[in-house]
Simulated scan of single mutants.
Amino acid sequence: MSLHDELTAAQRCLDDLVRAVGRLEGQVESGLDIRRVRTDADHLRESLALLRAAAPPGTATARPDLVTISDTPYDTSLWTDADDEGLGSARTRGRRAP
């Protein structure tokens, strides 16, 4: 995975965590423990934003160039000087596999 993909996956997980903490706040009595969890989730959100901002430029949108491969068959004359090494016994007449 690229850095951008990893940061996006981490952001999704963090968003899920923040939503879960919000649901927990509605079910658990307000107290120090739930406030600490909420604060920790907020700190994680800030840290991830800083990490995303510190990422090297160009990594956020860098994608490998796509290469189009034609479906038309290759010219068989390209392979006339090639030997059959590595092609298997089925490609060589009169020979059998060991």
Rank of each mutant, 00 (worst) to 15 (best):
M1K: 04
S2R: 08
S2E: 05
S2W: 07
L3Y: 03
L3Q: 07
H4D: 01
D5W: 07
D5M: 10
E6L: 11
E6P: 00
L7Q: 04
L7I: 11
T8E: 14
A10R: 04
Q11D: 09
Q11K: 13
R12M: 14
C13W: 01
L14S: 08
D15K: 12
D16I: 06
L17E: 13
R19T: 12
A20N: 08
V21A: 14
V21W: 00
V21L: 09
R23I: 14
R23A: 15
R23L: 15
R23G: 06
R23F: 14
L24S: 10
E25N: 07
G26W: 01
G26Y: 00
E29M: 05
E29F: 03
S30P: 00
G31M: 13
G31E: 10
L32C: 01
D33K: 13
D33A: 05
R35M: 12
R35Y: 09
R36F: 10
V37M: 02
D40A: 12
D40H: 06
D40Y: 11
D40W: 07
A41L: 11
D42C: 02
H43M: 06
L44F: 09
L44M: 01
L44E: 01
E46F: 11
S47F: 05
A49R: 13
L50D: 06
R52A: 15
A53C: 03
A53E: 13
A55T: 09
P56S: 12
P56D: 14
G58L: 03
T59I: 00
A60T: 02
T61P: 02
A62P: 00
A62H: 11
D65C: 01
D65V: 05
V67K: 07
T68E: 10
T68M: 05
I69R: 15
I69P: 14
S70N: 08
D71K: 10
D71Q: 12
T72R: 10
T76G: 03
T76M: 03
T76I: 06
S77I: 00
S77W: 00
L78C: 08
W79E: 08
T80I: 13
D81H: 12
E85F: 05
E85W: 01
L87H: 01
L87T: 03
L87W: 08
L87F: 05
G88M: 07
S89Y: 04
S89Q: 02
R91W: 07
R91K: 10
R93A: 12
G94Y: 04
G94P: 01
P98D: 07
